[in-house]
Design a protein around this nucleic acid. Structure first.
Lengths: 308, 308
DNA sequence: CCGCCGTGATAGCCAGGGGTTATGGACGCC
DNA sequence: GGCGTCCATAACCCCTGGCTATCACGGCGG
């Protein structure tokens, strides 16, 4: 009897939660679906995996035997998937780059040139990823490398190299009470409704809400936005204001929306990120194309210079 | 995207055959089913796994990356299944024993006693397995240990210990031309129609047809039989004659059927068999219960004595 | 003691996945 | 040029895997 790897994921989730309902939520399926699948898995294996005696769910001996093996199978399968897409990418000579922001800043041209120099024949495919995944597709293996704002969730799970350090600005509708200022102290914004990234973005959501600079007072959330289009639509519509990187204030300039520098906030960092277990040379070449001398400070300075 | 482990088996089979049609036969599915599944696997992985250019099938780079990992996943899954059923068996304190023959011979009583002595609280569950699987369920992991006639197919894949060595007899209908003989030379039986085990029994089928004693002349097959019931029904009905172990001549005695010793044939061996990677103590205890002093010769002798 | 809440199981329904047979189309071979 | 081999496609069918609604049971609070 062969199982679906999905069923093993179900099993592991329940084994971790020891609660069918919560596991179902985590897996985005209904609780009866989980019960049914586990029952079928148990029938296929001819062994009960969980003792459910009305009040508590517990692993049986068989379940305990399966758990580490199932986790390992899932891990191996995920790794196999990555190996396959890496091989396919290598054959097609395409590197897929996840973006969670517009880049601009004059960076892309230089990157393209330096990368082409090292890897003639290779193409770079940029893919825009919504902000529910703050790793821009890296976590799910949808991209080979990503350009993200720090902090990236689960940062220790990835390697990053900063390619730009920028002050944070605020974007607001042109009829906002503060538009006449040349720059705005963050303290004045505490009670404004902010646009927020989806909760799944974790620490990055907090970063763009400047939670650490609020001294424990919770931010007001005007709307949840998942990409730049949604963001500026929400600003235009008056749902709230939003922090953004200085460089993006220029890129996303549009009629009816004003951006101003914010004081009292540490700067934000744009970084290139990759998986630590991905040792492909082409990947290193791409990363090097962003910061050829490994000196991200100097690079960032150049970026800032260019903006003035 | 999660795959079904079955699909990985499909993939591996095709990768080995490099031929969809032959792989489909080997897997007992239709060729279109295989094509469809592989296409879906390829879609799920967003990578072609095979180049099929009309005349030949070959692995792509992505396929080459997947092959060893898929094999390993399958192996791990099979191992996990065994671990689960071992754990379930240990919890229930049940050892499942596959039989491909009746045992009798006064052996079971002693085995039961010696095993119960070492493992109080454990139960032994005997399961009759048809002869298509000459390993009596061991190969498919349906049993923990098996009692089989040697040679067991893929013998190097299992550990065996002989528990009885017996001469071979022949069973025939009472109106057979040779029933008046006290014993029969095998040479006289060359042209008789024989009952045969299913082809999947491999070398064991040949053993009970005494192929090696026929000097290259193919046996006549009267019928294919898959268990003792079918065998004696076929003998009674006149489909042919059949070789059997001396001990079984007694056990399976029934009206209308006569058994006689056959000369000119090497004896046959009954053995207890188990998987070499199964190191459970309870298993060793069970094996020891068959041949407590590791001296299978003495045990066999005792069996033969008991028959006289 | 009663009713509510949380939890898992069950029932009934529906879409689609995985199988089948029949057939098509490209290529190599005689 | 006809035939055989081999993979793909089409049409169909059943069962699986998902859903919603509901039940059964135990704990708990009023």
């Amino acid at each position: 009897m062969d199982a679906h790897l999905r069923d093993l994921r179900y099993f592991v989730a329940i084994a971790e939660e020891l609660n069918f309902t919560r596991a179902a939520e985590r897996l985005f399926v209904s609780q009866p679906a989980l019960s049914k699948q586990i029952r079928q898995l148990e029938e296929g294996l001819r062994a009960r995996l969980f003792d459910r005696d009305r009040r508590a769910v517990a692993l049986t001996a068989a379940g305990q035997a399966l758990l580490p093996r199932a986790s390992e199978l899932i891990r191996s399968w995920d790794e196999a998937q990555r190996a396959v897409s890496d091989a396919a990418a290598a054959e097609a000579a395409v590197l897929t780059v996840g973006l969670s922001t517009s880049i601009g800043r004059g960076l892309l041209h230089g990157v393209r040139e330096r990368f082409a120099e090292r890897r003639p024949g290779w193409q770079v495919q940029y893919r825009q990823i919504n902000w529910d995944d703050a790793t821009a597709g890296l976590a799910e293996g949808r991209v080979d490398v990503a350009l993200v704002w720090l902090p990236v969730p689960g940062q220790e799970a990835f390697r990053t190299r900063t390619v730009a350090t920028e002050a944070r600005w605020v974007a607001m509708r042109e009829d906002h009470r503060l538009v006449w200022r040349d720059e705005i102290a963050f303290d004045e914004l505490h009670d404004e409704p902010f646009l927020a990234l989806p909760p799944s973005a974790g620490p990055l959501r907090d970063h763009w809400l400047a939670v650490e600079q609020r001294a424990g007072r919770a931010p007001r959330i005007g709307a949840v936005v998942r990409n730049a289009e949604e963001t500026f639509a929400a600003v235009e519509e008056g749902s709230g204001i939003v922090l953004l990187a200085a460089g993006n204030a220029e890129i996303y300039r549009r009629p009816g929306i004003i951006a101003r520098p914010v004081t009292g906030l540490p700067p934000t960092e744009l970084a290139v990120a990759w998986r630590p277990d991905d040792h492909r040379v082409v990947l290193r070449d791409f990363v090097e194309a962003w910061a050829p001398d490994s000196d991200s400070q100097r690079l960032s300075q150049r970026v800032l210079d260019a903006e003035q």
